[in-house]
Design a protein around this nucleic acid. Structure first.
Lengths: 225, 225
DNA sequence: CGATAATCAATTATCGATAATCAGTGAGGA
DNA sequence: TCCTCACTGATTATCGATAATTGATTATCG
């Protein structure tokens, strides 16, 4: 589900700051090892220290920064490596999700087909962000179909896109290839052979692990008030 | 909270509160679904709202509570379901870890053999705690051998599920069976066939998911965390 | 000269107060 | 009667200010 721009319940300040920082970190605007000073950030965003602090705590939970009590919080080194590692972990989770969903016969084939179509449309429009969004939805369908709440929680925890408004987009990838990859994966899932589908689900993720990525997404600057 | 005579605020207030709350939650002093009101907690601990809030954020990261923005935070109702679910997630991670470790040739066979022996000794002594510890170590070896920091972090994050909802040890499980299971798994890993080993790693965990568990959901004493 | 203590500036951790928002309740109107 | 909506009490989100701690710098002394 995408967020409705209409009646935006005006997200919490901390959330906005968090998303902004996520974007800045994964896009490399703030360097690994760099210190994030609460008071300075507060000044930058035009807020008080509290929401900034809260945002930093969430970043820590996302493993984007690490905090040493009373000493400050720093952008973790090796963010890019972690991003790459996350594909492997996601692969593990999604392979299992695929297995569970197939065994339970709960794969939402129609919905997934629709996402593939969305990807196709995005590819033709050259809209890489839309493609990425559709991809996330595609994979989320599988994870949800497994009907394992903890699995889903764990998966979401790895998915920066799932938790923020930031989108990671693989650069140098033909959007049409993405469509094809997902179509093939879906075909394997529909094909009915459990092991083949699972392997495909895994390989699908592993494949992307080595590609370079870019961050996109709106990150509002200072607050309105 | 009681003022410790030692003048050293060894830890941050937020940390102390967090730890206290963890204890109360896993010990069942606060019920699943129960609401945790920041102001009330602050009063209880004799602090202001800030450190409580921060503690709650960390609990959220631990999946012990869930927060709905502007509505409050509630103790996550982790029924027995969560424990069972955790086995599946663990299976996913460990299967992948096995694959990675085998591909990299980094499996610490000796250390794992030692853990199996520890289990054997524990079995003969009827010490289920020791058996459980050895088992965790055994599996941790594999996860670490994968050399994927995120995978390890994710895996470690699962331990809390095991610790919290149930006394971990399935009822009616013969400690000698545990020894045998692990020995077989290790043999498969040493055997060299990738897919066999991976499948075994997965089944090993899935197996436990199907066992009946003691559901009293309480640890004997939450202290000495 | 080198080590230690005293001092200082920067920053985090915490506080107490206030604004914003939510859930519940009862009055008024179709 | 049922529904809408303003009102109220409770609670979260945010603020601005202060206490406490850190790391660096300088002064002191052997």
């Amino acid at each position: 589900m995408t967020e409705e721009p209409s009646k935006l319940p005006r997200l919490t300040l901390a959330r906005q700051i968090r998303d902004s920082l996520v974007g800045r970190i994964v896009s490399g605007q703030v360097r690994p090892g760099e210190r994030l000073v609460e008071t300075r950030l507060a000044a930058t965003y035009g807020t008080s220290q509290a929401p900034v602090r809260e945002a930093l705590r969430e970043l820590e939970a996302m493993r984007l920064v690490e905090t040493q009590p009373r000493r400050g919080t720093f952008v973790r080194p090796f963010i890019q490596e972690t991003l790459r590692e996350s594909y492997v972990v996601r692969a593990a989770l999604e392979e299992s999700a695929t297995r569970l969903a197939l065994l339970a016969g709960t794969v939402p084939v129609e919905a997934m087909r629709a996402e593939v179509e969305a990807m196709r449309a995005a590819a033709q429009a050259g809209d890489s962000e839309a493609s990425a969004r559709a991809s996330v939805s595609f994979h989320r369908h599988i994870v949800e179909a497994a009907h394992n709440e903890l699995l889903k929680l764990t998966w979401e925890g790895l998915q920066i896109e799932a938790r923020t408004s930031v989108t990671m987009v693989a650069t140098e990838v033909d959007l049409h290839d993405i469509v094809r990859d997902h179509a093939e994966l879906l075909a394997a899932i529909e094909g009915g052979d459990l092991e083949t589908a699972c392997r495909q689900a895994r390989d699908h993720q592993w494949h992307y692990a080595d590609l370079p990525h870019d961050a996109h997404g709106r990150m509002r600057d200072s607050a309105t008030g």
